[in-house]
Write a protein that binds this DNA or RNA. Sequence first.
RNA 1: GCCCGAGUGGCGGAAUUGGUAGACGCAGCGGACUCAAAAUCCGCCGCCCUUAAAAGCGUGUCGGUUCGACUCCGACCUCGGGCACCA
Length: 873
Amino acid sequence: MDESYDPAAVEAAAQQHWRALDAYRAVEHDPRFPRGKFYVCSMLPYPSGKLHMGHMRNYTLNDVVYRFMRSSGFNVMTPMGWDAFGLPAENAAIEKRVAPAQWTRANIAGMKSQFAPMGFAFDWSREVTTCDPEYYRWNQWLFLKMLEKGIAYRKTQIVNWDPVDQTVLANEQVEDGRGWRSGAIVEKREIPGYYLAITRYAPELLEHVQHTLGGWPAQVRTMQENWIGRSDGCEISFPYAPDTRSLMKSDGALKVFTTRADTVFGTTFMAIAAEHPIALAAAETSARLAAFIEECRRGAVMEANLATQEKRGLATGLHVLHPFTGEPIEIWVANYVLMGYGEGAVMGVPAHDERDFEFAHHNGLRIACVVKSTSGAYEEVREPWKPAYSEYGITVNSGEFSGLGYEAAVAAIAAALEKKGLGRKRVQYRLRDWGISRQRYWGTPIPIVHCNVCGVVPVAEKDLPVVLPEDLVPDGTGNPLNKDERFLACACPRCGQGARRETDTMDTFVDSSWYYMRYCCPGAQTMVDERTAYWMPMDQYIGGIEHAVLHLLYARFWTMVMRDLGLVRFDEPFERLFTQGMLLAHCYYREDASGRKRWFYPAEVEQEFDERGTPVSAVATEDGKPVMYGGIEKMSKSKNNVVEPGEFIKRFGADTARAFVMFAGPPDQSAPWSDTSAEGVHRFLRRLWAFCHEHREQIPLAKRTQVTDATLKKIRRELHSTLQQALFDYQRMQYNTVVSAAMKMLNALETVKRPDAVTLLHEGVSILLRVLYPVAPHITHVLWQELGYAAEMGDLLDAPMPQPEPAALHQDELELVVQVNGKLRGHVTVAAEASEEAIKSAALAQQPVQRFVEGKPIRKVILVPGKLINIVV
RNA sequence: GCCCGAGUGGCGGAAUUGGUAGACGCAGCGGACUCAAAAUCCGCCGCCCUUAAAAGCGUGUCGGUUCGACUCCGACCUCGGGCACCA
């Protein structure tokens, strides 16, 4: 055994040992593990090129779970794969003139090699790469099944259009309303695309998130609940007035959805989206309206933009009739009404809705108060807006429905509407169907063929996969598949005539909706097989909080679809979910004349902080001139604030890297990266090594004897109570305090200064090594072997977690806190079984306590057993 | 704008979920060892007053509940995540 700790040698030896054992290959029904299977998985990474500290944190977390659960006797499996399709590969292609496939595969190879030194327990025989035809063929296959079931369907969608580059832009590619490369003002454009009917599953998705996903963080459940957004309300039809009737050449009605049917008599205008059919029809005869709609079309489609923009509208001059009074109501086109939600039209009730109020005020529309406040918060509605105006109350000025409370009014109005055939109660979800078409090259081809004779025809199942050519290089102007004859030309599956392939590809969220099921069954000739049934549902899923809604909802939906097709037998894919926080880093930029930002690497910048640690200014090292401080943001390639683990591992070793990222803070919270305290963790591992080296001869020879000495008993109690805390923290995945616990154990063991204490040392070190092992597996593995524990208890991989001994935790005397009126005034040591009376008099006998109690009557005494006594005077 | 989080010493954070605020570590200060440095070891380390002791203040801000609040409730401020084509 070397005298000093050499991480490189230790880690090479440990990894060689595990490699020789093929230690992480997981086998279904492995008889070595009586407690059954445990499937732990981290969200698969996008192969951006370099592994960064954020990845390190995620996968260390994953690895700690793996090792802890295996030490607890489970047949644990943890896989790894690559989310290999997506936009960044196309961007790299444009910039570097290299095919996305080539770039992606090179990145995968690079990142895989960066994983190697970390000692992660991945079962690489299960690797999934989503751009492999053998993977994405099943995306296509399930898509065809969904088409058959009517879950997948075709309809128009609104996208960001860059009129200069003639290309569809992702939201991310829109900066301040302009295309990121061309700088042109972005427009909205309607094109056909495929949707998946996730809204059909909205009730079940909601039901489970409210009642069955107990292993999920409350925060995520709330976010999903709000995202699905169930509203109970009414659908109301406002029949067309003659002017609208003649324009639309129909005697239809304008349908709206409202949660406030009780306010229907307060409707003073109707607001419709710019893309609404009535708006489009009206625009044909009105230049002003056409111009306004054109204006609404400008700008991107992001909801954050729509919600913050000034609410504007224009009257159409058309009318509908109030369903009860028959009064004509004017239709307005408004930029805040979304075509994608509800009916694309709302009834404007300015008296009781803040947005309508603002809109009416702005456009000089009538405000009709139809609800009377029950709390007397207002008599009449007038400027400025008060939140009380939208509260429930008693209906007034509402004809036969006046004088009713909210629920009674809604019930009565809905019943009356239903009788007239002008409405009914309905549940509306905020959730929208999932548009999966992308006008992009680097994704799963949508298996559809366009035939001049037969129209839109699905590819036959036997012709799957539709393989994506891997040698195209996009140039930023449209989808290169549109220019690739080899890909385009095909025969119509129905009539056999020459036809053309669909060139849209699928959203990459499709790939990530089920990869974790494919990990379970590498090489299967079907989408999933019986091995999937063994490992799924996943026991522990780990991933970033930024995926709380989209990915985690799509994956749940996809699972339900697979279940309904008979492919799997469970309802939910993820039993327990852990959302880890992100690693953040400082970022710096400079803006050029056109407003474009250039981001600097932290290494290119010198940052100055004031004495409170707040950044004050920064200059670029290259020219000494100031750069703008962009705050602390999530590590991302586009902001150049990524910290790579390579250097760090070279300096300190993988165990220090692992222990340090765990020690840095609670894993479910985001943390700013800083390596200043890494020294402390490394020092701890060196001390551990030195301590074991010092006792390398006594420990293997130790005999088990009782610890009777009072000082040693105290140390032993500390050891066992720290162990208890560590196990609790393992369970709740608070690994930062697990590392603290290991440090405390070493601190305690170092106070053993007696040569005859070998029993305690033997026990203590065996506990410490096993507690630290999941976090720092290499050093603990080597020490475990060197000190003879492996011979005694077997390989550390499968050595059971130690358990605290009740006898070791027992205390004869307790120190209680003494409070007077809730303020700490002293301590008192009493026998463990002392009576309340005895404790009380002991507490009152205390000098400082006397001083505060003196002369005042004691009103109450509160005793918290084993903790404190509070005297209230 | 809407939804979800977070805010504790100079810094990262702890407080087993209403019961001793600051565990564990970093940085800093003092000391030992050393010709010296590094490494290592020992001690101190929230603020204020003070020679010291004792008291007082203290978990973003303001208010409330409680014998007792970092923890629960209300309002606000700041920062972070998401908002459906980044992944």
